[in-house]
Computed example of a mutant assay.
Amino acid sequence: MRDRFSRVATVILIALLAALVGQPYIDRLLFAATSPRAVAARSYLAESERATINLFERVSPSVVQVVGSAAGSGPTDFEGEQPREQSGTGMIWDAAGHVVTNNHVVNGTAHVAVRLASGDVVPGTIVGTAPNYDLAVVRLQNPRRLPAPITVGSSADLKVGQAAFVIGNPFGLDQSLSTGVISALKRRLPTGSGREIGNVVQTDAAVNPGNSGGPLLDSAGRLIGVTTAIISPSGSNAGIGFAIPVDTVNRVVPELIKYGRVPTPGIGIVAANEAVATRLGIEGVIIVRALPGSPAAKSGLRGIDQAAGEIGDVIVSANGQPTRRLSDLTDQLEAVGVGQEIELSIRRNNRSSTVRVRVQDISQPS
């Protein structure tokens, strides 16, 4: 009886082991999907998804790729026969075929080509650049079909936390969309010309090389900024991207289209480095010297007395706004505009006074 029980137990054990070992083969035989799977039905897209899709479909035709080649390399043809020196993004600005992009996208190029969303490649001509704002305008040469110009919004009423969208050509991959929020406002961004762009918009929407010159959009699909730079140790997106505010763009671009340049408002002074003012415990813009014949010199502003080693005039406010650093002064000069007068409060020998100075275009010879 015991031997019979042992044999039965052994048989059962062998059967269990065989089933365990053969299970994968059985599953593969019975359950393997050897034909296309049935497509599962889904409900409607979420309202937020539909809104984002609609935004991209409306705006993306107005977004273009801008490629420039350096002098001596020949026109860019997008086919790899000529080296792509610089590549970025741009947007259709008006029905005349003007495209807005960053100055650093086209700076130093001899030939510019623009690829439209349709795939058409159109030669372009640089009609104006504004290095102080990192903006440039390219005019398309005889395009066959032009997409609608991008819709322009305002940057004056932006709020931190509101949705932000970027469309561009990161790493040359055209018509790419990234989403995020406005992370901060009123940032300051240095430019290669030595001045700072004020009221810059910060976003965590992915901005990578190739996005430069493209649109930053609000949830209505309106242009609220032109992407220009990122902060990243690796050179790729790190969640900190910057855009030139559209209110600045909307002021500068018409000047570029009309005149090819933008006046640089100033009063003709050389200002001390901010570090010098900080070291001396002075809050304001220290005038090193007033240029001969400049509005500053004509208004009696004085610079540092090098012989005596004495500080001259310190500008402490402009138009009633504190000038803690040079960028505060340039902001007010731009607000006043060339040809107008600006009221400056200065401190000289611990005495305060007010002076009115005419603003001139310091980029032009006197």
Score class of each variant (00 low, 15 high):
residue 330 T to K: 03
residue 159 K to C: 00
residue 195 R to W: 04
residue 203 T to S: 14
residue 60 S to L: 01
residue 251 R to Q: 10
residue 78 F to N: 05
residue 118 S to F: 06
residue 271 A to Q: 12
residue 3 D to W: 10
residue 60 S to G: 01
residue 248 T to A: 13
residue 1 M to R: 06
residue 331 D to V: 09
residue 24 P to N: 06
residue 360 Q to T: 11
residue 273 N to Y: 03
residue 365 P to L: 09
residue 93 W to E: 06
residue 211 N to W: 08
residue 291 L to H: 00
residue 175 Q to H: 07
residue 56 F to D: 05
residue 170 P to Q: 08
residue 110 A to H: 08
residue 223 L to C: 08
residue 15 A to V: 12
residue 310 E to L: 12
residue 224 I to S: 03
residue 28 R to T: 04
residue 160 V to T: 13
residue 233 P to Q: 10
residue 293 G to Q: 11
residue 274 E to T: 09
residue 111 H to N: 15
residue 340 Q to D: 14
residue 12 I to N: 03
residue 95 A to T: 15
residue 294 S to D: 11
residue 131 P to F: 04
residue 137 V to G: 13
residue 333 L to W: 10
residue 73 S to C: 01
residue 234 S to F: 00
residue 312 G to Y: 12
residue 100 V to G: 02
residue 247 D to N: 15
residue 267 I to C: 00
residue 195 R to E: 09
residue 87 S to H: 02
residue 8 V to W: 13
residue 91 M to S: 10
residue 75 P to S: 14
residue 101 T to Y: 07
residue 277 A to S: 14
residue 69 S to T: 15
residue 73 S to G: 01
residue 22 G to Y: 06
residue 1 M to W: 02
residue 328 D to C: 10
residue 205 A to Q: 02
residue 142 N to H: 12
residue 345 S to H: 06
residue 347 R to P: 03
residue 145 R to P: 03
residue 207 V to A: 04
residue 99 V to S: 04
residue 161 G to N: 12
residue 70 A to V: 05
residue 112 V to P: 05
residue 86 Q to K: 13
residue 45 L to D: 07
residue 232 S to L: 01
residue 350 N to M: 09
residue 242 F to N: 04
residue 139 R to N: 01
residue 180 G to I: 08
residue 39 V to I: 13
residue 248 T to P: 01
residue 329 L to R: 12
residue 48 S to G: 02
residue 321 Q to D: 07
residue 318 A to T: 12
residue 47 E to M: 05
residue 15 A to Q: 00
